[in-house]
């Protein structure tokens, strides 16, 4: 539970200066001289103020109990998992990092290569992140899925998706 304890304090420590900075920003922003009884800065400043109070409580509180399962946890991360002996690139967290890396590359390439190519690659890549092999299955599914989505969207529903290299 030490881990959680630290994280809450980290959140609190980060929140306070950022919120203070935003309060200053909101207060100093130029305001129109229309008669506005409650100006546009009041609401954000109140929210930020409450956030600071909340952060102070988060910092001060001590953990006296075992956490119950989070209400929206899809898959509770077990803290007791003995994966300390794994090399860094074998750690389970790497799959999450790779997912994000894949998405970033996707977003970066989307404009140039187009929706079709990028999406096929994304599906195949993401599948490969957690499973070796099954290339034929994965590629065929990815191609069929992407083609169906792309043509369904652009030709039937007339929603624009980046065509990219193929120029369809």
């Amino acid at each position: 539970m030490k881990n959680i304890f630290n994280f809450n304090r980290l959140v609190a420590v980060l929140t306070i200066p950022i919120a203070t900075f935003l309060i200053v920003l909101a207060y100093r922003a130029p305001r129109p001289n229309v008669p506005q009884i409650v100006g546009p800065h009041v609401w954000p400043i109140s929210i930020l103020g409450l956030m600071i109070i909340c952060a102070i409580f988060l910092f001060l509180q001590t953990i006296r109990k075992k956490e119950g399962p989070s209400p929206c946890a899809a898959a509770p991360v077990s803290d007791t998992e003995p994966d300390v002996d794994l090399k860094w690139y074998r750690k389970p967290e790497m799959t999450a990092v790779l997912t994000i890396a894949g998405l970033l590359v996707y977003a970066f390439l989307l404009g140039t290569f187009g929706f079709l190519i990028c999406t096929i690659l994304l599906v195949v890549y993401q599948t490969r992140v957690i499973q070796k092999g099954h290339w034929a299955r994965n590629i065929i599914t990815a191609v069929i899925f992407s083609l169906a989505v792309y043509f369904g969207m652009t030709k039937l529903l007339m929603v624009n998706l980046p065509p990219g290299l193929l120029g369809w």
């Binding site: 894949g102 996707y106 599948t127 992140v129 099954h134 994965n138 599914t141 992407s146 989505v149 998706l161």
Partner: peptide, 21 residues
């Protein structure tokens, strides 16, 4: 019933689609 690994890839593609469209 789609294999889990593949489902993950497809869900990610759906996320992108939902935001981009």
């Amino acid at each position: 019933d789609v294999p889990e690994a593949l489902l993950n890839g497809l869900v990610l593609a759906l996320c992108v689609l939902g935001v981009y469209t």
